Simulated scan of single mutants.
Amino acid sequence: MTLITPTQPNAQASTPTGNANAPKKTGLASDFETFLKMLTVQAQNQDPLKPLDASEYASQLAQFSMVEQQVQTNDLLATLGQALGGANLDKLGKWIGMDVRAPSAFQYEGEPVTLFATPAPEADKAALVIRDGEGAVVDRISVSTTDQSIVWAGQRSDGQPLAAGTYSATLESYDGDALLSTQQAEVYDEVVEAQVVDNQVMLTLESGQVVTATTVTGVRAGT
């Protein structure tokens, strides 16, 4: 049931007086007094030949109550959303500036790069394969099966220095000539951006690579 539109103007009755400095109420029917004023105005402006009965007043009262409850619910949800969003932003902010270790391509700038990878337990030999940004193999280094970190000097297999750029490293574990496993090497890099994408925390590194927070295996203070 919708409200009756006044058929006759009644400026004196329909314009409640009040203090201009009084606080503004936010609910559609913020209190009982406001609702009574609305019913009074409606009664004064109804068609005397077709007056509203008590059931219609009760129906309108129920409608006011439902709308107010919905407004209050929306306000509560908005407050909760802001609180949860603030908590997420606080957590994301803690990543910024930290050095994280994750399987990722890395930026070589002329200085040796420390890479992290663990050979398979049953391997009797292992090799670190370096690829450039186009995926071409530029270096292949035999490494110990017990070492978990390798310092790459940034040179080709023939000893020629490589140009600065983006590279990646893969550790291959062998049992004799049989390839047991391949593992992308991890590297430390600084986090410059953190955001939530599809309910996952995504970290953008200084090298431009993007990794998920779940792949991070080490964190240290940024240099």
Rank of each mutant, 00 (worst) to 15 (best):
R156K: 12
G133D: 11
V151M: 09
V143A: 12
I150N: 07
L162N: 08
L115A: 10
R131E: 14
I130F: 00
G154T: 11
R140Q: 15
S144H: 09
S144A: 14
A123T: 08
A120H: 10
D132Q: 10
A127K: 15
A123Y: 04
P121W: 02
Q160E: 15
T118E: 14
Q148D: 13
I150D: 05
A123R: 04
Q148H: 07
S144E: 13
R140A: 12
E134L: 07
Q155W: 00
D124L: 00
V143L: 08
P121Q: 10
K125P: 05
D124I: 00
S142W: 01
D158W: 06
A136M: 10
A136Q: 11
A127R: 15
G154D: 12
G159E: 11
T145F: 04
V129Q: 08
V137E: 14
F116E: 09
R131K: 14
V137R: 10
A136W: 00
D158K: 05
A117R: 03
A127G: 12
Q155F: 00
L115H: 05
Q148S: 13
A153Y: 01
G135M: 07
S144I: 11
P119C: 03
V143S: 12
G135Y: 06
Q148G: 14
P119N: 03
E134H: 02
A126F: 01
P161V: 07
Q160F: 02
L128S: 09
A126G: 13
R156F: 01
E122M: 12
S142G: 03
V138K: 04
V137A: 10
V138M: 04
I150T: 11
G159K: 06
A123C: 06
G154E: 12
A123F: 03
V137D: 09
V137P: 03
A120L: 02
F116H: 14
Q160A: 15
V143P: 10
V143Y: 03
D147G: 13
D139T: 06
V129L: 07
W152N: 06
V137F: 01
T145K: 07
R131T: 14
P119T: 03
A117G: 05
T145W: 02
A117L: 04
T146I: 06
D139Y: 01
S149C: 02
L128G: 11
K125N: 15
A127L: 13
A117M: 03
R156N: 09
V137T: 13
V138R: 05
L115T: 10
V138W: 01
R131L: 06
S144Q: 12
P161I: 04
D147M: 00
P119E: 05
G154V: 08
I130Y: 02
G159M: 07
D139C: 07
Q148I: 06
S142P: 00
Q160R: 12
G154K: 09
E122A: 15
S157G: 14
T146G: 11
